Computed example of a mutant assay.
Amino acid sequence: MSVALDGPRIQASGGKATALVVFLHGYGADGNDLIEIGHQWRKLLPNTAFVSPHAPDRCAASPMGRQWFALASTAPDDPAGGAERWNGVVKARGAIDAFLDAELARLGLDESRLALVGFSQGTMMALHVGLRRRRAPAGIVGYSGMLVGPERLGEAKARDARGAPPPVLLVHGDRDPLIPVDALFAAADGLAGADIPTQWHISFGVAHGIDGGGLQHGGLFLAQALRAPKR
């Protein structure tokens, strides 16, 4: 049975929510790490609710933090760790899917009004889950992460009411020492090969983090993706 997730929320600024943005945090953090972005995006995304669930497992490397899955024993850019990462995202998927279903039902929204935003390990989860939902979310934003299992994108069949896959924005710092920026290009190539529309932005001089430019790109991307319900 999947662990029930929960985390900090920001209510929609205009009353009833007409869209939902879900943040998935990185390894060793928790939901409080990303929820502040929701405050920064409220003007771009009016009538949007934000939630940032805590990952289900305590993090061995940071006992005060959480993890979606244990880190692979190899470096993020080492293909040898692919099987460990794949097993990790597969195991963690169920809890996130259940959480998304519950939040959409609570707000009376459907998948066309949902967007996923991940950072680092959270990006791995946002891509894995979002591309495999029963119906496609409106968009996926991934900061400083990587695409797990690019060779398995044939199973990424999430589509919207028009039969289109969810659009993706990838943002990465060119000085990232933890997940090299090459991971962005590898992910973009993999997604393009699966006909999944992908945009990307490089934050110059930025390490493993999100700068103002990256936040602006993400907010504008989601404002476009959530502009109107897709019929």
Rank of each mutant, 00 (worst) to 15 (best):
P229A: 03
S112M: 01
G163R: 01
F204P: 00
L24R: 02
L109C: 06
G130N: 06
G163T: 13
W41A: 01
V117N: 07
V90R: 12
K16P: 15
K157P: 01
Y27N: 06
A192C: 03
D174C: 05
Y27T: 08
F99V: 03
L44S: 12
G163F: 15
T18G: 07
A186V: 09
L127E: 00
W86Y: 14
F221I: 11
P177R: 05
I196G: 02
R42T: 14
G28T: 08
V51P: 01
I37Y: 15
D6P: 03
R9V: 09
P79L: 04
V168I: 15
F69R: 02
F185A: 06
G15H: 11
G142F: 14
G31N: 13
K157F: 00
G88E: 04
S203E: 15
P53E: 13
G213Q: 12
G145C: 02
D30M: 00
A126E: 10
N32F: 05
Q121H: 10
I35P: 05
H54R: 12
F69H: 13
K43Q: 14
N32D: 15
L178M: 14
G130L: 05
G28I: 10
V168L: 06
G205R: 00
V206S: 00
C59H: 09
D189F: 14
L169Y: 10
S52A: 13
D30T: 03
A55W: 13
A192T: 15
V148F: 01
H172G: 11
G82K: 13
L104H: 08
R93Q: 14
T18S: 04
V148M: 05
H25V: 05
L147H: 07
V168E: 08
F185R: 07
G163W: 11
D174R: 05
S144T: 15
G219I: 10
G218T: 02
Q40M: 13
G14M: 00
A98T: 11
P8V: 00
P56A: 04
L5V: 11
A126G: 12
E151P: 02
H54L: 01
G28C: 01
V171N: 03
K230S: 13
L184T: 12
G31H: 02
K43H: 05
A115V: 08
G118R: 04
A102M: 10
R135N: 04
Y27R: 01
L45D: 10
Q199L: 09
R93S: 14
S112P: 05
G173Y: 11
T74G: 02
S13C: 07
R132D: 14
G15K: 12
V22H: 10
M1S: 11
T18W: 00
E155G: 08
P137A: 07
R175V: 05
P46N: 03
R106K: 12
P79D: 15
A92Q: 06
G149Y: 14
G14E: 13
L114W: 04
R175Q: 14
F69S: 06
F69M: 03
L45N: 05
R93V: 01
